[in-house]
Design a protein around this nucleic acid. Structure first.
Lengths: 134, 134
DNA sequence: TTGCTCCTCACGTCACGTGAGGTGGC
DNA sequence: TTGCTCCTCACGTCACGTGAGGTGGC
């Protein structure tokens, strides 16, 4: 599971200790056992940590909010009231938009960095071709 | 300077202690004094740390390589031999390309994350408009 | 003179890394 | 049986945070 998610066993145990992920079930013996869904969730956490640089506390809050939204989704499926369904959907939309803004601004920053490097590259190649022409 | 570079005084002192940035000159009194060039260099370090998640050891190596290339640039300007100038430029090109690959793959990862979030957003808005039409 | 920032230790914290010593599945 | 991975402490490390106590410029 560590390999699949791009981390180490120690990190997974640490996240379990913090409550960032649920305690894994143990097989006969003491080995932790994970389902596919657990792997997905962990991979997503690692991804947000690495790409956005979120702290484990921020990730905890995000996971908590995610759990609250999962609870809402159950109510959503149970409910027939359009007014309530609308409210739940709008809350989900707000949550997604918050994340999108964060990710988008990150991407802009990286893009800017890439542009600057690209410009320097062009400068060097220009000088090289000038050298060649003499 | 901490505010300008998006860090804290403590972090700047720590980087100085590690040799990641040069020891700042002191004014009369003991206050550290920085030039514009120092601020630029520090800002660049903070940027690479935050956007690419580089460790301070990796950044040290990068700064070292940068210093070596600065030395080469001095030779470059001193030299008249086209062969030597070409060699220096090609080395610079390789260095830039390495960084570009790293930054580019990062941007692709973020882009992918943004796409996934965007798809989920579309799904929610679609459901909302379906609700409205009834 | 009062407030604020700077300074240097030095201990604390976050997010794990790394053995030490022992157990379980192919 | 041999090798490998897993397990639990528990101490170590990296990258700073955070007072404690003191000094310097507007």
């Amino acid at each position: 599971v560590a390999e699949l998610t791009g981390t180490t066993p120690r990190t997974i145990r640490y996240y379990e200790e913090l409550g960032l992920i649920g305690s894994a079930e143990r097989r006969q013996g003491k080995h932790r056992s994970y389902r596919e869904a657990d792997v997905q969730r962990l991979a997503e956490i690692v991804r947000l940590r690495d790409l956005l640089g979120l702290s484990l506390e921020q990730l905890s809050q995000l996971v908590e909010a995610e759990a609250a939204r999962a609870e809402l989704r159950r109510e959503y499926h149970a409910s027939e009231e359009p007014a309530q369904r609308r409210q739940i959907l709008e809350q989900a939309l707000g949550h997604i938009d918050t994340q999108l803004e964060l990710v988008h601004s990150r991407r802009e920053e990286i893009k800017q960095l890439e542009r600057e490097l690209s410009d320097r590259r062009d400068l060097v190649t220009r000088r090289l071709s000038e050298l060649g022409r003499r």
